[in-house]
């Protein structure tokens, strides 16, 4: 269990949140022009990094807002939290 600092409500327990998987996956502009493999790559393939990962989280039992989190998956340490639409912090790239 760990604490997540919701950018709207403040620090809350992880049990109030729901993980939305990898962040910053851009939907292809012309899906009809993609091959099946390229579409499957966009739709299903996700990184599973041991280390720093950019993720989407939802404060599902609170304000119900989505936001982005930079998390070190090896120790569950939250390194940064930022709102949807904001640019990811450059020092973790």
């Amino acid at each position: 269990m760990f604490l997540i600092n919701c950018p709207f409500c403040g620090e809350r327990d992880q049990s109030e949140f729901s993980s939305g998987g990898e962040a910053h996956i851009v939907r292809p502009k012309q899906p009809t022009e993609l091959s099946d493999d390229e579409w499957a790559e966009y739709l299903f393939m996700r990184k599973n990094i041991k280390g720093i990962q950019f993720e989407r989280w939802n404060h599902v039992h609170g304000c119900r807002k989505w936001f982005n989190v930079v998390r070190d998956t090896s120790n569950d340490k939250i390194l940064s939290v930022y709102k949807m639409g904001e640019k990811p912090p450059v020092n973790y790239k």
């Binding site: 409500c9 620090e11 809350r12 327990d13 049990s15 109030e16 039992h61 609170g62 304000c63």
Partner: peptide
């Protein structure tokens, strides 16, 4: 509840959504 009521209980008028 997983919510920390420390600040909440000292502030009349506080509101929160939690479990």
């Amino acid at each position: 509840s997983p919510f920390n009521f420390e600040k909440f209980k000292n502030n009349v008028g506080s509101s929160t959504q939690t479990l």
